[in-house]
Design a protein around this nucleic acid. Structure first.
Lengths: 180, 180
DNA sequence: CGATGCATGTAAGCTGTTACATGATTGC
DNA sequence: GCAATCATGTAACAGCTTACATGCATCG
């Protein structure tokens, strides 16, 4: 692990920790869950071992909260961790990484013709409604972030909105083209 | 495996097979690699076992090409497979799926402030150039697809272009906001 | 004193990656 | 004849998901 570049989830977790300041693993996980983009979803079975891994590598230090009977542990990023985080951010380019945007909806569009015409329109209508809801969700989330206090968080959330809007517009083109 | 909904990669592979007609595992993998979005990238170690799995489940049938010394096997989708494919496409909605668009660039934006101002601008400039290249790549790919012959393939590729363009526009906003 | 939330983790199983390993075919 | 491509796979390892398991804290 030492000296290899962090994975996506590792980078995000470490980044959240850096942003938040000292907090528990549980809280990191809650933050991941609260994000409107569910790719930041992470189960206990991945977050706990992940942060334990980062601790073993010296990127995170822990202090056990003796006042808490639950054996609560506070995590904080170390200076080594901060260096690794910087490295991870700076490694965020290259054709492979840029193109690795997965979209299950788009994937299915390629094979829409296996459905009957009626199924296609029903499916696309349902999808449109859900996409509209999702756009609203990202917009609502954006409003909760202060542009002054957390500019980067704001810009990231703005990206979610812009991408969602583009997908919705595209979906409407698909509908028009499919129905003729 | 039987009766569970296909995973993303399983659906895509089965869909490609349905679209292509009978072909080898090797060819399916080449098609995955040729796609401009690298999330359709799949190593031998995943594609071969995956298609073997689908065959075991009866979604794919194979015929060994006896005239070929390499032990070439031709795969084709079965009627059970076609039903599973339809089910996979129709299952392609729901908040979790719609929001599961992963974007490593956007993820890193949230933590851009760990970099120095100089590092930020250098990074964003590099990113902009690569994003421009990627937009061009998706556009070029779109041109290779006949809208008449493969409408769904065209619309899928169009989605890649539109999403890429939206991401580039957003990235320029980020640049402007970060540099002030 | 009971429900909900906070808090920690483990175990089995599946999927995917990287690297290795092999050999035939085709075109120059 | 040689290189590139076609073609098939396996093995070790890492990571993630689901499900399980436990127990304290806090608020009503």
């Amino acid at each position: 692990m030492t000296n290899r570049v962090l994975s996506e989830l590792e980078g995000v977790c470490l980044g959240l920790l850096a942003k938040r300041g000292p907090c528990t693993t549980y809280l990191v996980r809650q933050e991941l869950k609260a994000a409107p983009s569910s790719h930041w979803q992470a189960s206990t079975g991945s977050v706990y071992p992940l942060l334990a891994r980062l601790e073993a590598a010296g990127l995170i230090a822990t202090t056990s909260d003796k006042g808490d009977g639950r054996g609560r542990k506070l995590l904080r990023i170390t200076s080594t961790g901060k260096t690794a985080l910087k490295k991870w951010v700076l490694a965020g380019f290259g054709p492979d990484l840029i193109s690795s945007v997965t979209d299950p909806v788009r994937s299915r569009t390629f094979f829409l013709d296996v459905l009957s015409a009626a199924q296609q329109t029903t499916y696309l209508d349902k999808l449109e409604k859900e996409m509209e809801r999702y756009v609203e969700k990202t917009k609502t989330h954006l409003k909760t972030i202060s542009k002054q206090e957390d500019k980067c968080g704001y810009l990231g959330a703005l990206g979610a909105v812009k991408t969602a809007e583009a997908r919705l517009q595209w979906l409407r083109v698909v509908q028009k083209e499919i129905i003729q």
